[in-house]
Write a protein that binds this DNA or RNA. Structure first.
Lengths: 142, 142
DNA sequence: TATTGTTATACTCTATAACTATA
DNA sequence: TATAGTTATAGAGTATAACAATA
């Protein structure tokens, strides 16, 4: 096929594969979360709360605005999965799993990981190679 | 590191790399398009018009609703890059590059491909390997 | 009746700005 | 003065629904 001989097509093909790969990862996440009855955005936050995290730090990790985290925390709290624990600095609220939230977070993490196409479709060595190649693509401009 | 020994972490790491790779691809696209002064969504449509394409078919290729294509076509037409050419089936409008649009589309395609991190960071053999691995991840459920 | 494209509207997601309370 | 979190609002991006023309 002409793809590899034509740099424009090769670049487009590979870019498309990466973007479609990400869409597949997102779809897998949504499918794995769905049985839990939790919105995807809320679930993404929940997974990051393996240990207590300040709301500001969570915003950084989610790459979103602080104000958006308020809504996510409200949702998690209403579901009884977390509580807001005031920190040593009394401005800070540490989002902390409740006894009810802990097993749900862990089960969710397991469900997402085990159904991941990356795990089901690739061998261990393939996964190492893929991680290496993607890291190279993501390497600083240099 | 513990990553490879812990399946949950390994899955998360790899999923994260794929998603970040896609973000990088999108950012590269945005950066390459920016000097052309064309919105990203419009540019994405423009690149698909190497040959005349019916609006409905373009919606399929962009994975968006038909109604959204109307706005993209309006933008491209106002910029003088395309015209709507009524097809044999007179309901159909083929979006067709104008003489002014052709060199711009081609220059855009070139700019996007040549600046792609996939091309600048990976060797030819690495690109083949990456394409193969991503295709495997994307393979039908099977 | 079904389909193409258009129009007007609604919805989802997320950010911005202004505010309160701590520091 | 600066920062954590909250609240209310606004905006970007896209879909939904109803419609006209054509098949």
């Amino acid at each position: 096929m002409a793809a590899a001989s034509d740099p424009l097509n090769e670049a487009r093909l590979l870019a498309s594969l990466i973007v479609r790969g990400a869409e597949r990862v997102r779809q897998n996440f949504a499918d794995a979360v769905e049985p839990f009855g939790i919105p995807v955005a809320t679930a993404r936050a929940l997974l990051l709360l393996d240990e207590p995290v300040a709301m500001r730090a969570l915003a950084d990790r989610l790459a979103c605005d602080q104000s958006y985290v308020t809504g996510l925390a409200d949702d998690l709290e209403e579901r009884g999965l977390i509580t807001r624990v005031t920190g040593d600095d009394r401005r800070v609220k540490m989002l902390t799993l409740t006894p009810a939230g802990r097993p749900i977070r862990d089960a969710l993490a397991k469900a997402v990981a085990e159904s991941s196409p990356v795990m089901t479709k690739l061998s261990g060595t393939d996964r190492v190679t893929l991680a290496h190649l993607l890291s190279t693509v993501l390497a600083e401009p240099a």
